[in-house]
């Protein structure tokens, strides 16, 4: 039996050499392929404008006051008018400045304002960190910071965040909280410049639906139909 041993050993050595050279070949092929892939010349990335910034801002329309003439019941018409106006009132451009805390919110998700700021006594910020430290009289497109000559928060009694549209409606009609008569309320909604900012918010912000004039006409028609609030 002893003459079998060398032949057997030979066979094992051959198998080992075969397997190892196969493995070596695989390593060399993978390595060379990888190197060729890594070194293959590609075009360099070019400076590009950020696509998100340039996305066309979607324009949302409001239904005009006359559209609601078709509703015969005056109460139902009044509520429908206010609900349409509510699409503006509850829009992030308006809600962000009607927070229920001392901090404004930002963006369409109503997240807390950065940097950390507070309303102060007049709604225009703490005496040592006024809103005007950053917010100028107009939007500043280079930095993306919005602005208005009257930039400030609504008084805390006029907090809208976390309220239903019906609650906001009753709050608007209560002079103790809105600090406005109905005439003043109409003027605020129709003519106030800071309210008007919601339709020209600058940068890539989504504007409130319709126009301030259309919104004002809805509020006027709602007041003229006895200003009925949604439940």
């Amino acid at each position: 039996m002893s003459w079998h041993a060398p032949a057997f050993g030979n066979w094992r050595r051959r198998l080992k050499v075969g397997v190892l050279s196969l493995l070596g070949l695989i390593v060399v092929v993978v390595g060379a392929g990888g190197l060729a892939y890594a070194l293959y010349p590609r075009t360099m990335p070019q400076t590009q404008v950020l696509a998100a910034r340039l996305q066309p801002v979607e324009i949302e329309r409001l239904r005009l006051a006359a559209y609601f003439d078709a509703i015969a019941d005056p109460r139902a018409r009044s509520i429908a008018l206010f609900e349409e106006a509510g699409r503006v009132i509850q829009h992030p451009r308006c809600m962000n400045c009607h927070p229920r805390t001392d901090r404004p919110t930002q963006t369409d998700s109503l997240r807390p304002h950065t940097p950390w700021v507070t309303r102060g006594v007049d709604g225009g910020g703490a005496p040592t960190l006024r809103c005007s430290t950053c917010h100028q009289a107009e939007n500043f497109e280079v930095s993306g910071v919005p602005g208005n000559i009257d930039w400030k928060l609504a008084p805390i009694e006029m907090a809208w965040q976390g309220k239903t549209l019906g609650d906001i409606c009753r709050q608007l009609l209560d002079p103790a909280r809105s600090h406005m008569t109905r005439e003043e309320l109409l003027r605020h909604m129709t003519e106030d410049e800071l309210v008007g900012w919601a339709w020209t918010p600058g940068a890539d912000r989504r504007a409130a639906p319709g126009t301030q004039a259309e919104f004002g006409a809805l509020i006027k028609a709602w007041l003229e139909t006895d200003a009925v609030c949604p439940p």
Partner: peptide, 19 residues
């Protein structure tokens, strides 16, 4: 207007010069 590194005084008031 997020960091304050660019603060200067404008008519005596601290303001962010980047905006």
């Amino acid at each position: 207007a997020q960091c304050g590194a660019c603060t200067v005084h404008v008519d005596g008031q601290p303001m962010r010069s980047c905006t």
